[in-house]
Design a protein around this nucleic acid. Structure first.
Lengths: 119, 119
DNA sequence: ACCGAGTACCCGGTATAGCATGATAGACAT
DNA sequence: ATGTCTATCATGCTATACCGGGTACTCGGT
């Protein structure tokens, strides 16, 4: 009776928007395709129900903007492109993630010592 | 006008309980002291308003249990101790974190390739 | 013509959990 | 009494992941 989920959904909070910004920054893309790309990279639990609202929020925050492009198959696709502000946010979020990851990884190490900053 | 917060509070979701379990597992301790220990380890934004509710939740989940010990200064301290279930949860959360961190770190790397699992 | 599947998007509701704020309470000094 | 320091707890807000369902369009099979 082991929990088969690869990661903890709570730990994804604040990360989904960053992942999307990173994907869109690398390549202008639309929602459905972004879901597929996320799945390919291991985030198998992320579905449209999570990604579309996240894209809407990012658009409202002016981190991405959208262009509707008719598709041969199915309804029109909404292609998202990163904005300059979005790129800044992407870099900010990445830095925040790296700091956090560093703190967590160093967590078990020292019993307690405020000082000692190696590197 | 740079954001001076070291990390993103949303990214902490699901992590605080793990951090507390780790601290309590290493050393039986009470809330106020745990806040101090968290600050020492770089989690400077975490305050009592976050830690006490998290401890209550962990206690309700039977991950920790508490013993009231009268203190020389101020009201009695509630010393928390990890339970066997709490230790399991701690290990589960750590594994989940490591899987997630691995996924995020590998994120920018490959353009797209479902296969290729090195090591 | 109908149906299902794949593509593509959106909306409403729920749960989780971090955080702000403030209340409570004991011990001690002034 | 009043204030301060230590220590705990409760209430409410908010962001956001997630679930279920619905809408639309295209294509292929029956």
């Amino acid at each position: 009776m082991i929990d088969m989920t690869p990661y903890d959904s709570q730990m994804l909070k604040g990360l989904v928007s960053f992942l999307l910004l990173d994907l869109v920054a690398a390549e202008t893309d639309y929602g459905y395709s972004l879901v597929v790309r996320l799945h390919e990279r291991g985030f198998t639990e992320l579905t449209e129900g999570t990604v579309y609202p996240a894209l809407s929020r990012a658009e409202q925050s002016r981190w991405i903007d959208a262009v509707l492009v008719p598709s041969e198959k199915g309804p029109a696709r909404k292609y998202y492109r990163i904005t300059p502000a979005g790129n800044e946010e992407r870099l900010r979020a990445r830095a925040a993630w790296q700091r956090l990851a560093h703190l967590v990884d160093a967590f078990g190490s020292h019993p307690h010592q405020p000082e000692s900053e190696e590197k």
